[in-house]
Structure formats: C-alpha cells, structure tokens
C-alpha cells in the first residue's frame, strides 16, 4: 500500500485562560516530510490568531509576531511555553480546561491542516495534564 508521508501535528494544547483574559496561547509539535513553512493560523475561538515568539533579552521579556515558522524536512518543530506560540487574541470566551477547539494551520506547501486543541488547566506546562512543576524549565538561550 503506497502511503504518502503526511504533515504530522501532535500534542496540540492550550492553557486555560485566567478570568476574562483577552489573549491565550496554543502550543503544538509539527513535523513535515518535506521542507515547508508554517505561515498562518486561524481559529474560530479568537478574533485573531497569529504566530508569536517570546524571548528574554537579559531579564526583559519580549513578545514578537513571527512571519512564519520554518519546518525542516522530517524534523519536529515544537511550539511551547517560553518560546514560540500561537497567539489567540480577542478570545470570544475564556479557554476552559477539559474543552477543545479547532485550529487551522496554513502551510506554504501542504496547504491547510486542521487540528483539535485540548485545553489544559491553567497550571499545565504541557499536553496531557502535566503539572506545571513536573516539566523541565524552558531552555535558556
């Protein structure tokens, strides 16, 4: 059975948002069989969705929009806390733990991919209900 390698999207999750917080962040791991580029995101839960990165310059935290995320062939690229994230701006309602929502990824070559994002509790540091302190600290640059 011939099988075409597919773009693989794993562990799509978001953290429950506090109160009426307007913004949230979603994370996932994506791997493409060929070099590709993630150029856009869309979700019905927010007015706007975009690719962002969080960096520390000394002790100053900066968040910046990204034009895209390069996906080298067969290499998993992780969007995770303390690094790149999918920014959900102007949430229509708070992201609640236990729920999920659809997210569409726009790839230059592979086109549109849909994924379901699981909302973890506010203290989660990763998908699958991992408690915040059970995860290693984000890598330092």
């Amino acid at each position: 059975m011939a099988q075409t390698a597919q773009v693989e999207i794993k562990d799509a999750w978001a953290r429950a948002t506090p109160g009426k917080a307007e913004n949230g962040a979603a994370y996932l791991t994506i791997q493409s069989p060929v070099a590709d580029r993630l150029v856009g995101v869309f979700s019905p839960v927010a007015k706007k969705a975009g690719l962002h990165t969080m960096t520390m310059e000394g002790s100053v935290m900066k968040m910046r929009p990204l034009g895209g995320v390069d996906l080298p062939a067969n290499q998993p690229v992780a969007l995770k806390p303390g690094g790149m994230h999918i920014m959900l701006e102007g949430l229509n309602e708070p992201l609640q733990a236990g729920k999920s929502f659809p997210l569409t990824l726009n790839l230059e070559k592979a086109g549109q991919k849909q994924v379901e994002v699981t909302v973890e509790k506010a203290g989660a540091a990763g998908p699958g209900g991992q408690a915040g302190t059970d995860m290693p600290m984000p890598a330092k640059r």
Partner: peptide, 16 residues
C-alpha cells in the same frame, strides 16, 4: 494580563 505565556505561568507557579 494580555501576556498569554510567561505572565500566567509565573503567577501560577507562585500560587502553587
């Protein structure tokens, strides 16, 4: 509060 990543993480670890 518009910070979606590091601020809630820090507050959460502090409250834990």
């Amino acid at each position: 509060t518009h910070c979606p990543d590091a601020c809630p993480t820090a507050l959460n670890e502090m409250s834990l």
